[in-house]
Design a protein around this nucleic acid. Sequence first.
DNA 1: AGAAAATATTGATTAGAATCAAGATTTTGT
DNA 2: ACAAAATCTTGATTCTAATCAATATTTTCT
Lengths: 191, 191
Amino acid sequence: MADLNLLHNNKGLLKLITFLKNKGERRTMRRRDFFVREGEYHAEIAYILRGSFKLFTSDYRGKEQILSFSFDHEFVACYLPPRYGCKALLSVQALEESVLLVAPLKDILSQIQIEQNGTIYVSDFVESLAFDLLRKNVSFRCEAPEERYRKLIVRIPDILNRVSMKDIASYIGVTPETLSRMRSRMLLEEK
Amino acid sequence: MADLNLLHNNKGLLKLITFLKNKGERRTMRRRDFFVREGEYHAEIAYILRGSFKLFTSDYRGKEQILSFSFDHEFVACYLPPRYGCKALLSVQALEESVLLVAPLKDILSQIQIEQNGTIYVSDFVESLAFDLLRKNVSFRCEAPEERYRKLIVRIPDILNRVSMKDIASYIGVTPETLSRMRSRMLLEEK
DNA sequence: AGAAAATATTGATTAGAATCAAGATTTTGT
DNA sequence: ACAAAATCTTGATTCTAATCAATATTTTCT
């Protein structure tokens, strides 16, 4: 999941990484390959060794809406892995040549039972996720697109080299044309 | 938290209700009273015996943005109770005369330690929350305001009697004028 | 019950972003 | 390296929803 870098201190998440490093299947993906397709019953979770992904779906007009990006050293799944037996709400697609460590969710859940106190795993993971989602909600409701753009490039400076303006525009909720104009306005203003 | 009704089947949530019923402080609130104010270090969680609340904050223009409603038999907190020691991102305000069962978060956390396997409590709770937040994100990005309105009144039909159009408008992300016009258009169309 | 406040509706106008369109630039894949 | 495709920028136009404004209706409070 994107935006969780800071939470790698987190004990549960570290255990999850260790598990994936020991038991995970190494999977290489090319640009545009899908890790998850919306509507599938996808039950895997992955750790990104190298690469980047976008998490997206379509809006009521059929236009792609990107809800999140994920980069190296982050987890990726269709946001909430479908514990509820429901279909993936989002598609997850590689933006670059990427390398993943993948494990079926059931393996992770059985690990938890073995470890007894292992519930912490999922708890920490989901808690990070919830916090991220709350911040995203607030951001989308309360910040101007320009502010979302500024914060994004502060948080992930590298994103400008690795993700297209088209995709960044979708993420912050404007058209590519509007983002382009926004950026040239910002350039003028900072002179 | 609003929108979690369906998750009352959930074992962890049931335990949490039981705990609040046994040990919770009964608190009566009048219309417009705040349960949480944005920016506070608020560390309580409550179960609503009767009444309703809105969870909101201000956008970059100072306009109130409602992110959630909570009604009878639901939990309410400043969304994520601040385990991270961070300030509340949202205010929680009573819309009606309301009765709560309130417990400090630390009591709940210590309960968990006593119960050993009790981590499930928070895990279930936070998991419900994360799922709710994901759906909200997708809804805001992908559905038209009219669709959000329709789904809201299907999910909580009672809301039309208990919440002002102004607040419903904020929740679905339009001005009160736009909602009013939307509603009269919908009335015409269904004839 | 009645005055005052808040809310809801409706119309007119404005503002801002989407769309449409065309050209320039960059990237991709063989 | 090259052709083709995709992306980015810029301008002109359109369209939708916000704002402004005035009135009607409902709710609140004593």
